[in-house]
Nucleic acid binder design. Sequence first.
DNA 1: GTCTATACTTTGATAGAC
DNA 2: GTCTATCAAAGTATAGAC
Lengths: 199, 199
Amino acid sequence: MGQDEDEVIGRRGSRPKGVARRQEILDRAIEVFRERGASGTSLRRIAEAIGVSHAALLHYFDSREQLLVAVYAQAEQNHENPPDLRPGIDTMIHAARRNVGIPGLVTLYSTLLAASLESEESVGRDFFSARFEVLRRTITESIRQQQEEGLVRDDVSAEHLSALLIAASDGLQIQWLLDPAVGLESTLQTLGTLLRPRA
Amino acid sequence: MGQDEDEVIGRRGSRPKGVARRQEILDRAIEVFRERGASGTSLRRIAEAIGVSHAALLHYFDSREQLLVAVYAQAEQNHENPPDLRPGIDTMIHAARRNVGIPGLVTLYSTLLAASLESEESVGRDFFSARFEVLRRTITESIRQQQEEGLVRDDVSAEHLSALLIAASDGLQIQWLLDPAVGLESTLQTLGTLLRPRA
DNA sequence: GTCTATACTTTGATAGAC
DNA sequence: GTCTATCAAAGTATAGAC
């Protein structure tokens, strides 16, 4: 953490280039996505909603994809206050509870993630690859601990459980976006039940 | 089944309009995706690979999205031979084992699904909404049966398990596409372990 | 450093010729 | 039934004003 953050969010080099203004644009972009969702988010429309020209956006971000990834990364970082929970099913449920209030950003996440699959080399690809790697490692370690403490059943691989948690969250979000009747939180609670050791 | 199929795959009306030629194009498009994956799949590139003009494609399909949905729907239907398994974790594992051989089509599925989230009304949206609805209902019923037979633990909701199975499959596919080291089949096997009743 | 103006390229889509 | 021509919109890139 520290100087790597810049690249993840998309800054060009180590020299800050209009950091304040850039941050301003980023914050406004987040608002745009939070309100209007992810529909019709061309560079020109985003620029229009923010009140600048589309070329101005490209002055701070190398490409549309980079802007979008930066928007998501920033939004994620903004509410990154794990309330004393260890990474695992509880944090996923916590995130789900928050996400139901910001469907626009959830859509942004899902579409960006899928778009990153299309090209072997892209900003999004690197971002999400790294994100999943870190997430899986962190959750795996946390689950292994909880297994030792008897909080999670230990007859299954912690690595698999970690990947499963993430996959279930991502997949359920999509089902929920398509049909809000799908219980995002309650279904994850059920997954939590599956994880508990036999009493 | 029967006359509804037309709309799902994207045919305009009941009158067949060059059905044979259309099918030919569809089959070749599937090959294109199977080989070259989903990268750079503009209408013009697909047309070029098939050997026609992009306008010709739009003669048979109303839009690019409709063509892509038709390609996926056709590909899915082609290998729809459930080997005497009841819908549930086993069929998902079976599908996973098949999908690792056709990453291009898995990518097509993931990107199409995500793209359908962006607009409230689109061919993809309707297609995937219906697909998930049918899938969930079918699997839920099958799981409920298996619960009664003591094959699946019955202390959790069959509806939730159904949504979880689908979500886990979709989510794991994405993780696997980003990092082939993620064990698609083995992780689903672990989910299967979670579903078994306490011995 | 910040941004407007502008143009280049590709895209999905339409219209009309053959 | 399939093409060529054409369109509007999009992402991108550059030049240069301030």
